[in-house]
Design a protein around this nucleic acid. Structure first.
Lengths: 229, 229
DNA sequence: CATTTAATTTATCAATCGATCATTTTAATG
DNA sequence: CATTAAAATGATCGATTGATAAATTAAATG
């Protein structure tokens, strides 16, 4: 519980510095709020956020209608910055074997997102109101996990069916969730984890690819040739 | 934000019921506190806890020195109730194949612990202060995951070495963490998940057993025959 | 039934919370 | 330099927080 002590003013100079461009101010506030909420949760005080910026608390209410509005802005900021547009194309580049493709992706994805701030805010958000996290999980499912199933099935010569059944999703979540829990242990709980993140990712993918064929076969029995649903 | 409205008293009867045995009162308070903290987090108010019990707020301070003391009692309650003593022996019963043994265990462990209250308090606790969760994770590692490695190695004829290296732990955490994330999605995020929990567990174990031999070989190269460390 | 112990309540305090409004002050404008 | 729009502060409000102390009352004791 150490004092943050934003500015050590020596009583000689007023140190009155003000006036930032609104866009910059908004960005700074959201950034400080994200840091603060990541540390103490969304019950954290607005005065502490202001203190981080060297600014008074009522100023926040000039840029956000209320605390919930600020929290929502933090949600958007954290989640929108967590996806690199180039990943979309990368995951569908069939010039690269599926296994290599997803290992490269996860190395970058984890490097980019698995830090205390992102992880803590994600879990705080999930506990606060599930909707935001539901939305993000839907994104993960659509952008990563379903792609993994489709691309892998294709590489195995099982056709180009776009539909992925809930039964096929579960093992992909098992892999993804296991990696998330690796981040939880390393960056939230501060527990000693394997030093070689690349190997952790490689093993997680190996585990999935080992049972994936069985899962695909289970989901699409060969005796029936109808579509889905 | 609906009112809980603990007791509908019709103004005719005073309904003054009091005096519980201290041990019962303590148990009730901890139970109500666990429920409340599980819902809103440890920033939840002490008055709300009292309201759940139909009791006034200062009463809590007769049985607990302060809010932190109550939280600590909730920690202990939730975690101590989460381990069945019979599991210890069950995991070491070599009359049953390792695969069956751990599948049976996980079915019961998940049935017993994967509920909104236990999961939410676990994650809230991890975010609040890592130490409690570190302690519990150590327990999981000692009681479940290291046993899995030892028993599996034994069944594969790889000897009875008790030591399990950090490198060997990681894939077991990948499996366990994946299952935890399944609970997170199902009971915290309220997302649709596979209906057949048994199959989820089976697949998770299949994924682990598929790469385990490789991991054991990696951890104990055959050219050198020294112990560990 | 009278006495006593302690479980419980009533009343209350100081601190902190999110939020509002009038005022001050910065910096761009002509 | 005077004017002006708005960025930022100071002061403050009502509600809620954890916590304390005195008064009340239920239940055990003799």
């Amino acid at each position: 519980m150490a004092e943050t002590d934003q500015k050590e003013l020596s009583e000689s100079e007023p140190v009155k510095r003000r006036r930032k461009a609104p866009e910059d101010r908004v960005r700074d506030i959201v950034d400080a709020a994200a840091d603060h909420f990541a540390e103490v949760g969304f019950a954290g005080g607005t005065r502490d956020i202001a203190k981080r910026l060297g600014v008074t608390q009522p100023l926040l209410y000039r840029y956000f209608p209320d605390k919930d509005g600020l929290i929502e802005a933090v949600y958007k900021s954290v989640y929108l910055e967590s996806w690199k547009p180039e990943w979309d194309a990368g995951l569908q580049d069939r010039a690269i074997p599926v296994r290599r493709r997803f290992e490269d992706f996860y190395r970058d994805y984890i490097e980019e997102n698995f830090n205390p701030r992102w992880l803590r805010i994600s879990y705080f958000a999930g506990l606060r109101d599930a909707k935001v996290n539901q939305w993000y999980n839907h994104l993960v499912e659509e952008l990563i996990l379903k792609q993994l199933v489709r691309e892998h099935r294709n590489e195995l010569g099982l056709g180009d069916e776009a539909y992925v059944s809930p039964e096929e999703m579960e093992p992909t979540w098992q892999m993804h969730g296991g990696l998330l829990h690796f981040g939880w242990r390393r960056h939230v709980l501060d527990l000693p984890t394997a030093s070689d993140t690349g190997q952790v990712i490689g093993d997680a993918l190996d585990m999935y690819f080992a049972i994936a064929p069985k899962v695909y076969a289970r989901a699409a029995p060969k005796d029936v040739d109808n579509g889905h649903e």
